[in-house]
Simulated scan of single mutants.
Amino acid sequence: MLAYLEEQQHNGVTIGRASSELGVHTETLRPYLEALILEGKVHFDESDHRYYLDPDAVPIRPTAADPDRIMAALAEYAAETRHDIALAVLAEDGLRLPFYVEPHEGPEPALLSGLRRDSAHATAAGHALLSNRPNWYLYRYFDRIGMPALTDRSPTTIEDLKPHLESGPRGIWSARGQYCEVGACIAVIAHESHYTHTRFALTTSVLDRDYHVRKHALRGRLLQTAGELQTVLGPLEL
C-alpha cells in the first residue's frame, strides 16, 4: 500500500480509486489505511477526501549518488560563472545543502554559505522543493520549522508563500531579497523520482543589483548543470 501511495506522488488518492486500482474492497482497505494513519505513515486530507503518503514517513534510501561526480559538476559551474552553487534538499530539520561550492576566484560573495535551515520559505531552492506539496504538508512543515522574517520581503504566511512556489518559464524559481536584502537566488529541480526524499534543487546566488544582467546566463548554465546531474543523482543519506 505504501509503494502504491508513493506512486501517486503529491496527488493523493481516494479510497474508491485505490480500491478499484488495487482490486481490494473498500471495507478491507479502510481499516488498513486507518492503521497507517495512526502509525504516522499516511495522511488523510478531509478537504479533498484523499489519502497521501506522509513524506516524512518514507525512509531515506542508502545513497546511490557519486559525491565526486556531483562536486565536479558543481565546481565546473563555479569556475565558469564565478558564482556559488549548491545542491539542496528538504530534511526533517529544514533546508540542507549537502553539496556546496564557493565562487571561484571572483568578486561575487558566497551568499549561500551558511544558509539557515529555517529559510526554505525565503529561498529559490526552498520554493522549488516545496512546490506541488499539498496544503497539509506545508502547514505541518512550517509549524515545525517556522517562517521567520529574514528580511522585510520574506513571506511569513502560507498564503504569502504560495505564489512563490509557482515556477517561472523553463521550470526556474527565483527569490530576490527574501533571504538577505542584497542577494537573489535562482533554483531548478535537479532530480525527482516517485520517492519523496529524492527531490533535489540546484541553486545559485547573485547580488540583487546584478540580477537582471546575470539572470539569463546563470539560468542557462544552471539548467545545463542540472542536466549533467540527471544520471548522477540518486537518494542521499542525510
Rank of each mutant, 00 (worst) to 15 (best):
H216M: 07
L207K: 06
F200Y: 14
G114D: 12
K215N: 14
P148F: 10
A110S: 14
R170G: 00
L130Q: 04
F142S: 08
A187R: 03
D152P: 00
N135M: 07
A201M: 05
C180L: 14
R199T: 15
V182R: 13
E159P: 00
D208Q: 09
D208I: 05
G146T: 11
V213R: 11
L112Y: 05
G171D: 00
F200P: 00
T196D: 12
R176F: 04
E108K: 00
W136V: 08
G220T: 08
L129R: 01
E108P: 00
I158Q: 03
D210K: 06
S131P: 02
A184M: 13
L115W: 00
I145F: 14
R176M: 07
R199C: 12
L207F: 06
Y141L: 04
A217M: 11
L218A: 08
P169C: 03
A122W: 02
R170S: 10
S119K: 01
L112M: 11
C185M: 08
E159D: 15
D152N: 12
E166D: 04
R144P: 04
A175V: 12
A124S: 04
A120H: 01
L207S: 11
T203F: 05
R144A: 14
G220Q: 07
R133K: 05
R153Q: 15
L115Y: 00
Y211H: 09
G220W: 02
R116I: 06
R176E: 11
E108S: 13
I145M: 15
D143C: 05
T156S: 15
A120P: 12
A190Y: 06
A175M: 11
R221K: 12
T157D: 09
D208E: 15
R117G: 15
R116N: 14
R176Q: 12
E159G: 01
Q178V: 03
E159T: 09
E108Q: 12
D160R: 14
G146Q: 10
D210F: 12
I186K: 01
D143T: 10
P109C: 04
V188C: 10
L161N: 07
W136A: 02
D152S: 08
P109T: 08
G126I: 05
V182K: 11
I189Y: 06
H194D: 14
H194C: 03
V206D: 07
A217C: 00
L138P: 05
S131E: 04
I145L: 15
Y139L: 06
L111V: 07
L161Y: 08
N135P: 01
C185L: 03
R133P: 05
H121C: 09
